[in-house]
């Protein structure tokens, strides 16, 4: 069984057969739809959000069908899959010897982790060359916003650069020491600097004799670990902390949702926003769900009557399901899908 299969089993296990294969795909590739975001929260698998951004659908389907052939999962009526008992056994025994990366937190960090990695790796590369007096190298990131950020925050004098580099080394070492040795090693080998260019994911995978997907997920878990540490101990790692600057406080909302949020805050109703933004009502409703999930202080009472909320929550408990359709049947169509979704996602937090 490959690592990717384990990830799939894990997700199917959590989804309890209540979501289709598309939902799995969107989760792994980090498609920012409100539904995916909601799923991540609801089923407690947010750590996988967007960890395999380049996954192709055919590959997913191929793995799913071989898992099915092996009897580890079985299809159900919701176009989804359920884990079988032998599937669960296989999963448990695999995880016992090779647990999922502890720090993986796709949901929390998907928005910043790419940016953070790019800043950090370009910063390290630039320091590495410059402390040896060499400033002509090909930057590891072509993205100009990243290049400009690094330029703006780069120490001016040679002496300062040497000190900053030394300190950055200490900061990174402190964090990496807390992680599995293999993960730390892959992370360092992916960095570029004087005398050595970073390795690609495939090269790292070959080096460690693990799969591409495992490598990719492990590398991200290291970035997530750094982010987490830095958020809680910014005083101890000022340089690493400075690289999240400007991105940390922002709400993790999609752009369009942000606009809706602003309008809501200014006191507009859903209808008014639909009209003003010339979007479908369902789109605005998706935005609301996204906001409800991401903004803890956002109250849904204005959109779902508190009594309705109580009924819906109760229904979900009684039938032990998060499936909208089942709940809707159970409450005899008294409430809309939108009301049910909004309530469930608030509940999930």
């Amino acid at each position: 069984m490959q690592y990717f299969d384990v990830v799939l089993l894990y997700i199917f296990d959590r989804f309890k057969g209540e979501r289709s294969l598309s939902a799995v795909y969107h989760l792994l590739t980090g498609k920012k739809s409100s539904q995916t975001i909601q799923d991540g929260k609801l089923f407690n698998i947010g750590q996988f959000f967007g960890v395999l951004k380049k996954l192709n659908r055919a590959k997913l389907e191929q793995h799913v069908s071989s898992l099915q052939e092996a009897g580890l999962i079985k299809p159900n009526q919701h176009e989804g899959y359920e884990i079988t008992s032998s599937g669960r056994e296989a999963l448990t025994s695999f995880l016992a010897s090779n647990p999922l990366p502890e720090y993986l937190a796709g949901w929390q960090y998907h928005k910043v982790s790419d940016l953070y990695w790019q800043r950090l790796s370009l910063f390290v590369q630039s320091l590495s060359y410059s402390i040896r007096g060499n400033m002509s190298f090909y930057p590891i990131s072509k993205d100009e916003t990243i290049q400009n950020w690094v330029k703006k925050h780069f120490p001016m004098t040679k002496e300062k650069r040497v000190t900053v580099a030394e300190n950055l080394f200490q900061e990174m070492q402190t964090i990496l020491n807390k992680l599995p040795d293999r993960d730390a090693s892959m992370f360092v080998m992916r960095l570029s600097g004087i005398g050595r260019t970073g390795l690609t994911i495939s090269q790292l995978a070959d080096m460690q004799k693990i799969s591409y997907e495992e490598t990719s997920i492990r590398l991200q878990s290291v970035i997530h670990a750094i982010l987490k540490w830095v958020q809680n101990h910014s005083g101890q790692s000022p340089i690493l902390a400075s690289m999240i600057e400007g991105e940390g406080e922002e709400l993790p909302l999609t752009l369009s949702t942000k606009q809706t949020y602003k309008l809501l805050e200014s006191g507009m109703t859903i209808e008014q926003i639909v009209h003003l933004r010339r979007l479908k009502r369902s789109t605005i409703e998706d935005h609301l769900v996204e906001i409800a999930i991401n903004v803890p202080e956002f109250s849904i009472d204005a959109f779902v009557d508190p009594k309705a909320q109580a009924d819906i929550r109760l229904a979900s408990k009684e039938i032990k399901s998060q499936r909208l359709k089942l709940i809707k049947n159970y409450v005899k169509d008294q409430y809309t899908y939108f009301e049910i979704r909004l309530t469930l996602c608030k509940e999930g937090i």
Binding site: S128, F169, M172, S185, G193, R196
Partner: peptide, 12 residues
């Protein structure tokens, strides 16, 4: 050894 390598990259 990642510690050695990281040190090589960032210290003179």
């Amino acid at each position: 050894d990642w510690g050695v390598e990281l040190k090589r990259l960032l210290t003179v």
